[in-house]
């Protein structure tokens, strides 16, 4: 082999002459002694695999420890918490604070508001995003690039906090649910995800429907929407999570509307030092100590619980949404 190669190598430049020669030098011993290399390779592989699994288990633990710690605290007694003895398992198991919050109509008022914002906001957002995405996905739309650009530009330049705030004031939306629902009606990322999905929608189906006499409304609501369940599910989840987690618009615009605040604001207020005392007011001293010790942990759990319960089952929709968005960029 080497002899055969040499004539060709000598005719070519010196730099390339080395490459084929050395390659064959490498492979020939490997071919001769295939077994030793394989064993050596697999041993290195095993060590690597073990290290890798250990690292990944470390990642899993690092991710879970904060959750586990908060859950343990939520079920622990005040004395154990205040002595710093709670780590991963409840110490002095009790449900006092859970019972206290569960029996507090104010808390459920906040919770009901969060549900309302999530449902209403998701419906509004879904409708606005889907219809606009459908329109700007059509090649025949007059001004298609203008309407797309109108949305995309807002990703790179935004009016800013103060002008937004004054706008909500001037529109008379302060202390109404619309201050929370309207300014975030369309997320441009989601819009582009839907647009790229609709662009890939088979035109034959729509044309057939048009031949059968359907107009755009009919085509969209009776043909396109039923066949876009996957992307609509993804969008629903993206929006629902965003509304569930939202707190800043509420804190900014619902300053005088206690009865409209979402549960995230309840939790935010708990984090401010003396709010816990208020929640525990009127209770026996023991109970006040207990509630003060873990009311935040309990509220954290109750706030994130719905998302954590649903999340494992719908995870793939989130992932597919990210992928669709990536195709776009």
């Amino acid at each position: 082999m080497t002899q055969l190669d040499n004539p060709t190598a000598s005719t070519s430049a010196t730099a390339t002459a080395g490459a084929p020669g050395s390659r064959h030098d490498d492979t020939s011993p490997a071919k001769r002694g295939q077994n030793p290399t394989k064993i050596k390779d697999s041993r290195g592989q095993t060590i690597f695999l073990i290290v890798n699994v250990v690292i990944l288990i470390g990642v899993v633990l690092a991710t879970l420890i904060p959750f586990v710690n908060v859950i343990a605290k939520a079920f622990s007694s005040a004395s154990a918490i205040n002595a710093g003895r709670v780590t991963f398992w409840p110490v002095g198991f009790n449900l006092t604070t859970f019972q206290q919050i569960a029996g507090d109509p104010a808390f459920w008022g906040y919770y009901r508001n969060t549900v309302m914002y999530t449902v209403l906001g998701t419906l509004i957002s879904l409708f606005m995003t889907a219809t606009y995405a459908y329109a700007i996905s059509k090649k025949e739309l007059v001004g298609k690039s203008f309407f797309t650009g109108l949305a995309v530009f807002t990703m790179f330049f935004a009016g800013g906090l103060i002008p937004n705030y004054i706008l909500i004031q001037k529109l008379g939306l302060m202390n109404t649910i619309w201050a929370v629902l309207l300014p975030s009606a369309i997320a441009v990322f989601n819009l582009l995800v839907m647009k790229s999905f609709f662009e890939g929608f088979p035109t034959e189906l729509e044309e057939a429907a048009r031949v059968d006499g359907l107009k755009t409304y009919g085509v969209f609501f009776r043909i396109v929407v039923p066949l876009s369940k996957a992307v609509l599910a993804t969008m629903t989840l993206f929006y629902a999570v965003a509304y569930w987690n939202s707190w800043f618009p509420a804190s900014l615009y619902l300053t005088k509307a206690d009865n409209l605040r979402p549960v995230t604001i309840y939790l935010r207020n708990l984090m401010q030092s003396n709010f816990g005392n208020e929640a525990a007011a009127g209770q026996s001293p023991d109970m006040m100590v207990q509630i003060n010790a873990n009311i935040k942990s309990v509220a954290i759990i109750l706030t994130m619980l719905p998302i954590l319960c649903v999340y494992p089952f719908v995870q793939r929709y989130f992932v597919s949404g990210v992928m669709l968005g990536a195709v776009k960029s």
Binding site: P66, F67, L267, I300, T303
Partner: peptide, 20 residues
Amino acid sequence: VSYMPHFLSVVVVVAIIWEM
């Protein structure tokens, strides 16, 4: 597991930090 924290509200995240 590693995707999970992405879905939490910042309020929850900061509250967890405070608790820890």
